[in-house]
C-alpha cells in the first residue's frame, strides 16, 4: 500500500512535533492517564491502539485541549508543541485548536452547506482576506480531502446530505482548512463501511506529506496499514511505543503481545 523504504527514511529524518512528559489525567477521582511520555514526529502517521477505556482517546484530546470543556477533568505534566508548552497560560486553546485539528469518531458535519462547513474555521480565525481567498481555501481543502470532484457542483447543498464516507471526508476537509500543523483522528473510520474506510485510509496516508497525523483506532489492521509509529496504551499507561512493524512483529512487552494476538481487548 505504501513504500516501506521511503517511510523508514522519512521517520528517521523527521523532527519531534509533540513531546509529552509525565502526563497525568484525572476525571474526578478516576486516574485516566498515568505518567505518559511520548514524542510524536512530524509528517508521520502515529497510531494509538489499545483496549477500550485504556485512555488513548483521552490522551488524544489532551493534545488539542479538548478536555478543557469537561469540568471534572484535571491534567498534569507537560505537552509541548514545537517546544511550546500548550498548557502554558500564554497559549490560547482557541488558537491551539486551529493549529491542531481534530476529526471525530462519527462524522459531525454542521447542518449548513458544504461550503459553509469547510469555510467555518477559516472564517472564525480570519484566515482569508476576501471571498476569492476563501473560495481558494475551500477548494484546496476539499481537494486535499479527496472530495472536490464529488461535491464541486453542489457546494451550497447541506453537508448532512452526503453519504457517511463523504461526510467524514468533509469533516477532514473542514479540519485541514485552518492549515493545522497536526491532525488528530479519533477512530475516524469506526462509523464507516469498508469502502469508505478504504478511501479515508488512503487519504490519511496522503495527508502525511503535510501533517503530523495521530490516529486512534480499534483495528490493529488499520494501525498496521496506515501508521509508521504505534503506541500501545493499557489501563491509562503507555506500554510500548515504536516503529509500527516492530510493534506488530516483535513486541517487547507481554501485554502488547497479548493484545496483538487477541488475548486482551
Amino acid at each position: 500500500m505504501y513504500d516501506m523504504n521511503r517511510v523508514e527514511n522519512a521517520v528517521g529524518q523527521d523532527e519531534i512535533k509533540i513531546s509529552a512528559r509525565n502526563v497525568q489525567v484525572w476525571y474526578g477521582e478516576t486516574h485516566a492517564i498515568k505518567d505518559v511520555d511520548v514524542d510524536i514526529l512530524d509528517k508521520t502517521v502515529t497510531a494509538f491502539i489499545g483496549p477500550s477505556g485504556c485512555g488513548k482517546s483521552t490522551f488524544l484530546r489532551c493534545i488539542n485541549r479538548m478536555n478543557d470543556s469537561i469540568p471534572s477533568a484535571r491534567i498534569e505534566g507537560e505537552i509541548r508543541l514545537d517546544g511550546e508548552d500548550i498548557y502554558d497560560r500564554s497559549i490560547d486553546p482557541v488558537q491551539l485548536r486551529a493549529r491542531v485539528g481534530m476529526v471525530f469518531q462519527k462524522p459531525n458535519p454542521f447542518p449548513k452547506s458544504i461550503y459553509d462547513n469547510v469555510s467555518y474555521g477559516p472564517r472564525i480565525h480570519g484566515l482569508a482576506r476576501n471571498r476569492a481567498e476563501l473560495d481558494e481555501i475551500v477548494e484546496r481543502s476539499l481537494r486535499d480531502a479527496a472530495l472536490w470532484n464529488e461535491v464541486k457542483d453542489r457546494l451550497q447543498e447541506p453537508g448532512t446530505g452526503l453519504s457517511g464516507g463523504q461526510q467524514q471526508r468533509l469533516c477532514i476537509a473542514r479540519a485541514i482548512a485552518t492549515s493545522p500543523e497536526m491532525l488528530l483522528m479519533d477512530e475516524p473510520c469506526s462509523a464507516l463501511d469498508p469502502i469508505a474506510t478504504g478511501q479515508v485510509e488512503e487519504l490519511i496516508d496522503h495527508l502525511r506529506q503535510d501533517f503530523s497525523v495521530v490516529i486512534v483506532t480499534h483495528s490493529m489492521q488499520q494501525a498496521a496499514r496506515v501508521s509508521q509509529k504505534t503506541a500501545f496504551f493499557h489501563l491509562g499507561s503507555l506500554v510500548e511505543y515504536g516503529e509500527t512493524d516492530e510493534i506488530f512483529t516483535k513486541p517487547q512487552d507481554p501485554r502488547t503481545e497479548s493484545y496483538i494476538s487477541g488475548r486482551i481487548g
Binding site: 488539542n64 479538548m66 482557541v94 485548536r97 486551529a98 458535519p109 467555518y120 472564525i124 480565525h125 479540519a175
Partner: peptide, 17 residues
Amino acid sequence: PRSLRDGSMALGATRSE
C-alpha cells in the same frame, strides 16, 4: 448533539461562536 459542539470547539471556535 454533543458532536456538533465538539466539532466546532475542535476547529478552534470560542464558546460564543
